[in-house]
Design a protein around this nucleic acid. Structure first.
Length: 266
DNA sequence: ATGGTAGTCCAACTA
């Protein structure tokens, strides 16, 4: 089974590219982030025509997450915990998570809050959101240590200095702060390993390149998109790639797709 | 030449 995650930065603005990529990449399950639309605006039929089921969660023009699957899509949930923090004035839930069981794997498509700046309320929200995710993950593995769980998506964290093109450039910025990195490590310590890294070593291996300042051709990116797998899922991983080619050309998302190959269940 | 973003929807925000 091939499982992918991709922050598409608007599914409507680049629907043709998204469909073409899914079609030629032979992926069974794709987690999308930043669909940037409400449910009623999501172009579901185009995915159905390709032979995939879709579950989407979008509340406004911001955020938005989806799961696309041709191996089943069951038990959809848009809340990994009753304690997911809210944001805004008034505080409200945002469309940053959707989970479903696809081909026996519990897949969560996640769009972690950006944080904006270290002084912004959004940064506090980001850390609280990550703690709620960690707590939920501990609960799932506590109930069933053999559960096949994949926490995938845009984590908006560069876990190590090797995951940014220039450490000095990001001094004092979000994505690289110690509390964010500690939150990422806590997810790993809870049992959710970065299953891509062994197949995509760094430094200089990235999943995101800012649209500005010609960051992509200069190879100045960040590694912030991940597939984190529970122990039973890790055991099935036989390969992984970051599809840097998809970042090229007119109409590309600023993120590249990340793909993991899973061996059949033993 | 010494430059240089893109999405949501039209003013400003988000990333």
């Amino acid at each position: 089974m091939r499982l992918a995650t991709w922050n598409v930065n608007s599914v409507r603005a680049r629907l043709d590219r998204v469909l073409a990529w899914i079609d030629r990449s032979d992926v069974d399950v794709v987690a999308l982030q930043e669909t940037k639309c409400k449910d009623e605006q999501f172009p579901e039929q185009a995915f159905l025509d390709l032979g995939y089921e879709v579950a989407h969660h979008g509340l406004s023009q911001w955020n938005g997450v989806a799961l696309v699957s041709r191996v089943g899509l069951e038990d959809v949930s848009t809340q990994f915990s009753p304690d997911v923090p809210h944001f805004g004035e008034p505080a409200a839930a945002e469309a940053r998570a959707i989970g479903a069981t696809c081909g026996g794997v519990r897949v969560w498509s996640l769009y972690v809050p950006n944080g904006r700046t270290l002084q912004d309320p959004h940064y506090v929200y980001k850390l609280a959101w990550l703690e709620a995710l960690r707590s939920a993950g501990v609960g799932w593995l506590g109930q069933d240590p053999q559960a096949q769980v994949a926490l995938v998506g845009d984590f908006n964290i560069a876990p190590t200095d090797d995951d940014v093109w220039d450490v000095d450039f990001f001094a004092g910025a979000t994505h690289v702060s110690e509390p964010e990195r500690a939150a990422f490590r806590s997810l790993v310590d809870a049992g959710f390993a970065d299953v891509v890294r062994p197949y995509a070593p760094g430094p200089g291996t990235f999943t995101y390149w800012d649209y500005t300042q010609l960051r992509f051709p200069k190879r100045q990116g960040m590694r912030i998109d991940f597939v984190l797998g529970s122990p039973a899922l890790q055991a099935r991983v036989s390969g992984a790639t970051i599809d840097r080619e998809e970042r090229k050309g007119k109409g590309a998302s600023d993120h590249a797709p990340v793909i993991v190959e899973l061996a059949p269940n033993a």
